[in-house]
């Protein structure tokens, strides 16, 4: 049964609600090539948002009202126009988020970038799949653990994730394999306890995400013989209560070329917002609630168990 058929069976339809979030994907270039990456980002990719599109994104944020703007990639740190993107967006939204794989924030530009994030009061969402180094490196590559821990310490030193500083550092955790994430609350508790105990690291909140069977993760599922069971597991755990809180209902996702989607996963498979290619420069008003969201079977990843929102799982 397809995702659409499953929705119909539960007398549900996936339609937009009020749009509150703009997610800006600046491109596929990344210093890592994680095995779960639905966009197949990596060092060999050269798709990056150009200066003109950066200005078009900023202009859109100026004319429309977004409660949250979320900068993602690839590795946003590798975008040469990142300082302009951040300073241009900052006045136009109360909440500006930036995603990081932590390792791209290490190195000689580290201090400069962290200062940029601090001066603009960005919320940092850092990827860390596990408190176990082997699991982390199995997903993200050799050497990632030490670099990620060192960057988390630097972020804490700058005030991110430290209570009372007003600077948020959230952790995004994806399972390192063909299984669903553990309870978000319990995972947060364990990460908090272990990162503090072992490294003296603190953070604000943790969000658990399901791995979406697209891109490099799909290929790994296929080559490891896990694909049929994983897809079956996602379908079996379809939770109709999750549909109402799905991130695609309130998010507009823009790609490195300026084209619009309902989420980063639809972006990965070229499923445009409202079914046709619209450019952000042409967007004069926010999408109307009720507009249908195009789906494919990868959407089962967002409705399995507790569900998937732009800020983590929701209660079933």
């Amino acid at each position: 049964m397809t995702f659409e058929q499953t929705l119909e069976q539960h007398k549900l339809a996936l339609v937009r609600s009020a749009t509150t979030t703009l997610q800006v994907n600046v491109g596929r270039l990344c210093n890592l090539a994680c095995r779960h990456c639905h966009l197949e980002a990596g060092p060999h990719r050269d798709e990056l948002m150009d200066a003109e599109t950066v200005e078009e994104v900023i202009a859109c944020a100026e004319r429309l009202d977004f409660a949250t703007i979320d900068i993602t990639g690839g590795a946003p740190e590798l975008l040469p126009h990142l300082p302009r993107l951040i300073s241009g967006l900052r006045p136009h939204t109360p909440r500006l988020l930036i995603r990081t794989n932590l390792t791209a924030l290490a190195g000689n530009k580290s201090e400069q970038l962290i200062n940029l994030y601090r001066d603009n009061k960005l919320t940092i969402v850092a990827s860390l799949p596990s408190i176990n180094s082997a699991q982390t490196e199995a997903q993200r590559g050799n050497g990632v653990w030490e670099s990620a821990i060192a960057t988390l310490k630097l972020l804490n030193e700058a005030g991110f994730g430290v209570e009372g500083s007003g600077l948020k550092l959230d952790i995004a955790a994806n399972p390192s394999g063909a299984f669903l994430p553990a309870s978000q609350a319990e995972t947060e508790q364990r990460f908090r306890r272990e990162l503090e105990r072992r490294y003296g690291i603190s953070f604000s909140s943790l969000f658990s995400f399901v791995n979406v069977p697209l891109g490099r993760f799909h290929r790994w599922l296929e080559s490891s013989g896990n694909l049929p069971d994983y897809l079956k597991n996602l379908k079996t755990r379809f939770n109709p209560c999750s549909v109402q809180g799905l991130m695609c209902r309130s998010t507009l996702s823009v790609d490195w070329q300026g084209y619009l989607y309902d989420c980063d996963f639809n972006q990965a498979v070229g499923l445009h917002h409202s079914g046709t290619a619209h450019h952000i420069s042409q967007l004069q008003q926010l999408p109307q609630p009720g507009v249908r969201i195009p789906t494919q079977d990868h959407c089962f990843a967002c409705t399995a168990g507790a569900g998937f929102t732009c800020t983590g799982s929701i209660d079933a």
Binding site: S130, N132, A134, Q135, P181, T187
Partner: peptide, 12 residues
């Protein structure tokens, strides 16, 4: 084994 991984345990 599956249940332990899904509940957040690691191989260690």
């Amino acid at each position: 084994t599956r249940s332990c991984l899904e509940k957040g345990s690691n191989l260690e």
